[in-house]
Nucleic acid binder design. Structure first.
Lengths: 223, 223
DNA sequence: CCATCACCTTGACCTGAATCAAGTCTGGTA
DNA sequence: TACCAGACTTGATTCAGGTCAAGGTGATGG
């Protein structure tokens, strides 16, 4: 979790070699899991490329995707002694792995890093509160609308009230598990949005928001 | 948010007067709101007594309670420039208010404080992931069971498999808004648990868990 | 001791989303 | 170009939980 600002931004002109010496790069193939929920949390990760999904599971296999992470995002902040979530690459990802011990050396050497990490955690905390409202109180329609709008803010939004090209790199299953719905419901609602000329479905992964403003309204329950 | 470890624990034997000089105490009466969602975030709070509920609202009044906080918990970490949530006293609360500027002076003076804050944010992050799973994937029965079990862990659990006395200081409305249900559903499920001899309802606020183990199972969807 | 009010419980009914069950589309392969 | 497998869509039906509507309960005050 975390966004847009690399871990390096708090180290700036300091010796990047030190940072490199405390971390190791890794590549994770599509669909491969690299954090096991409940496993001892030994590492902290930064996503450097591709995408990743975070999730928790119930014993019977029900899954809640708690977030998607991409380049620049932090993972493993929510660390006590064991991970509170699992993580899996979404179409291949590259990561920087920082063992906790190394992390500690880094924060000692670059105290401002600690602040950055807190900032990052706080930002994520705010996002999660919005997501709890989505899961606890929004209708299926509102959830899907919120998801589409959320995806927009990932790319630097040009101007609202204009069509926006989106790609949804995750399968419907992941969207459903993120929104607390079933794939059928997600599919039906996207179709409904299309019928209402709110979106255009160019391909499974490519969607155009034709009326971003209206979708925002729907997302907030003000349609 | 945050739990059990006062902010002071990272300052230890240092001059508490400095801490006091950067903060002010405040008392909030039952039901009074002291953080307005979306308002500029100028302060950081520590709950020193009583209880507090945190929530977000949708424009039409739907409410999601994102957490309850009590003595020792931190509030306002999720701070960008504006609060991501509202906060309201639950039966009267006392707080310590730290203006952000003062907070910064404190973290400069006591660098370990920064680490404590991150730790706190991370802990909260982990809790929120569990809550997202609750809201996105659990049934009403599982949610209420989870809520009861969660309340247990607030008091230092003596031994499982033995009856546990609980008090639920919040009205049903708050429980419902916390679990993403209606008051009727919460009420019905508590009644059902009573009928199944899983709990005993001594009064509206006093509940005895007769079979904590079984309730835990239900909470995880393994009944 | 009763009235009142706020909160909670219970019941009857309804509905949004899940489930179950076919189709359909897409991209890869031969 | 045709075939196949996996992912998506669509339709019919069901059901968990919401909504609407009475009661019940218990603390406060007259």
């Amino acid at each position: 979790m975390g966004r847009r600002l690399s871990i390096c931004s708090s180290i700036d002109d300091c010796d990047l070699a030190i940072l490199a010496s405390e971390s190791s790069r890794m590549t994770v193939a599509d669909g491969r899991s690299f954090i096991e929920e409940g496993a001892p949390a030994n590492d902290f990760f930064v996503v450097t490329g591709g995408r990743v999904k975070l999730f928790t599971l119930l014993p019977d296999g029900r899954r809640q995707i708690t977030g998607f992470a991409e380049g620049g995002d932090f993972l493993g902040l929510a660390a006590s002694t064991s991970y509170a979530f699992g993580a899996e690459a979404l179409g291949g990802a590259t990561l920087c792995r920082f063992p906790h011990a190394g992390m500690q050396r880094l924060t000692e050497r670059f105290p401002s890093l600690e602040h950055r990490l807190r900032e990052e955690a706080s930002r994520e905390l705010a996002l999660m509160q919005a997501r709890m409202t989505l899961l606890g109180r929004k209708t299926a329609r509102e959830r899907v609308a919120t998801f589409l709008i959320e995806r927009c803010s990932h790319l630097d939004r040009p101007d609202p009230a204009h069509p926006i090209e989106l790609d949804l790199p995750m399968p419907r299953t992941d969207i459903a598990d993120y929104l607390g719905l079933t794939i059928e419901t997600v599919s039906r609602i996207l179709s409904a949005f299309k019928k209402e000329k709110l979106i255009n479905i160019r391909s499974i992964t490519h969607i155009t928001l034709l009326a971003p403003e209206r979708i925002s309204m729907i997302a907030e329950g003000m349609e």
